[in-house]
Amino acid sequence: MILVSASPFDPGALLAAFAADHPHAGAAVTFTGMVRSSPDRPINALILECYPELAENEIATLRGRAIERFGLIDAAILHRYGRLVPGEAIMQVMTLAAHRQAAFDGAQFLMDYLKTDAPFWKQEETASGTQWVEANTADDAARDRWAK
């Protein structure tokens, strides 16, 4: 399953439905990215810009690569765009495999690539205005460790 949407989602309900579809899986890994507002850097909201058609194509390619590389039973990726407030889920990656290592690795691989290769751009809305979030070179390094 791939979903790129402006609508909120329920992380727990999604996992329950996804896992229920695959009773032969022995391991499920879920990562949910949330909007964070820390005391030293409070934000009112996170605004995500997106190129939806490209996002769906690129995420589908990444999902296929993850399933093949790690022998996953299935993988699902959801990513929101639009205006989100602290505590809301931005995105969720779910992997199912026979055993835990493949499920963990597949989820990590998908997360690392989604950070740098899926067309989303974050903007922080604070009391003093809005600023684009800068890309983090550590994210590039995390992705590049999968290159081979």
Binding site: G33, L54, H79, M91, L114, T116, F120
Partner: peptide, 10 residues
């Protein structure tokens, strides 16, 4: 064709 600045999703 799209020109895409460094992405910051996830």
């Amino acid at each position: 064709v799209a020109i895409l600045p460094p992405m910051t999703g996830g």
